[in-house]
């Protein structure tokens, strides 16, 4: 201590900081945002429950003919939703397993040259219209679940790949230097510092890919997997407005629900302190 004011000399051990107050304010702010988070988490489910409830009441009030009944019954619709979710989930999981390691690889010093190649491939997959892309795959491999999943994977690889790369690149390099300087191996630095700090960006990519897949999976009906696209397509083909509306609302509602759930997961998985 050089100069001494009375407050400092009375408790020199604690070394009071002028900015301590702001730090406490920071802690309270964290608590407050948690509360806000809970409020925000309630909004979307309420809205969706309302929409589905209204849809149900409206359909129940309609006189359904035999054709409509064949599509609009609980077991058939549940089956469609399951098919739809299976497509989206399987393709997204495969993309995660492929694109995240590739994204990590592309940001390693020793393998930097692969980055442009990977990005070019990813861009190619996304630039081709999804309908066309799946058609090509089906032409090559025949109709069915696997072909559709393959098409979806090619279509949605880019967001995860790019976000993994960006997420890792935006990690403050002084933190990496600090980790290495303390004796963390490159692998430990990746696992304990780089990846946790990239999590928010990577998850945003996963969420985008998931939404793309949920949306694009409606096209699967043309390639041998019914899913929710089938309901919409039936509505159009057979000129049954209730069927069309149920298909459309369910497809959109499902996309919103999945997006919402992905958002919740994103917030939960984001490391505290960020």
């Amino acid at each position: 201590m050089t100069t001494s004011t009375p407050t400092e000399t009375t408790e020199p051990q604690t070394g009071p900081e002028p900015a301590e107050d702001t730090a406490d304010v920071g802690a309270t702010a964290v608590r407050r945002t948690r509360r806000k988070l809970v409020l925000r988490w309630m909004g979307m489910p309420a809205l969706l429950a309302l929409a589905f409830g209204a849809l149900y009441l409206w359909v129940s009030g309609q006189e359904l003919d035999s054709i409509e009944k064949r599509t609009l019954n609980a077991s058939a619709l549940t089956q469609r939703v399951i098919e739809h979710l299976q497509l989206a989930a399987v393709s997204t999981l495969i993309v995660i397993v492929i694109a995240i390691p590739l994204g990590i690889l592309a940001t390693r010093r020793s393998a930097r040259y692969v980055a442009p190649v990977l990005l070019a491939l990813g861009n190619l997959g996304q630039a081709i219209p999804s309908f066309g892309l799946i058609t090509i795959v089906v032409l090559l491999a025949g109709v069915g679940f696997k072909s559709v999943v393959f098409g979806l994977v090619a279509y949605s690889a880019l967001p995860i790949l790019r976000n993994t790369m960006v997420g890792l690149q935006q990690v403050d390099q002084t933190l990496v230097k600090s980790a290495r300087g303390m004796g963390m191996s490159p692998m430990k630095t990746l696992l304990r510092v780089e990846l946790p700090l990239a999590v928010p960006v990577v998850l945003a990519g996963v969420r985008t890919a998931l939404i793309l897949n949920v949306g694009t999976a409606t096209l699967a009906t043309f390639f041998g997997v019914k899913a929710l696209g089938y309901v919409i397509f039936q509505g159009i083909q057979l000129d049954r407005t209730p069927v069309l509306i149920v298909g459309a609302v369910m497809a959109s509602g499902l996309a919103l629900l999945v997006d919402y759930l992905a958002g919740v997961v994103e917030e939960l998985l984001t490391p505290r302190g960020l």
């Binding site: 403050d172 002084t174 933190l175 230097k177 600090s178 980790a179 290495r180 300087g181 303390m182 004796g183 963390m184 191996s185 510092v193 946790p196 700090l197 490391p271 505290r272 302190g273 960020l274």
Partner: peptide, 22 residues
């Protein structure tokens, strides 16, 4: 080098505290 660095304390200008660590 990793073993060496564990024997040497290291502080940089930006301090480099890990934001996701307490």
């Amino acid at each position: 080098p990793d073993a060496l660095r564990r024997r040497i304390g290291y502080v940089i200008q930006q301090i480099g505290l890990f934001p996701h660590f307490t």
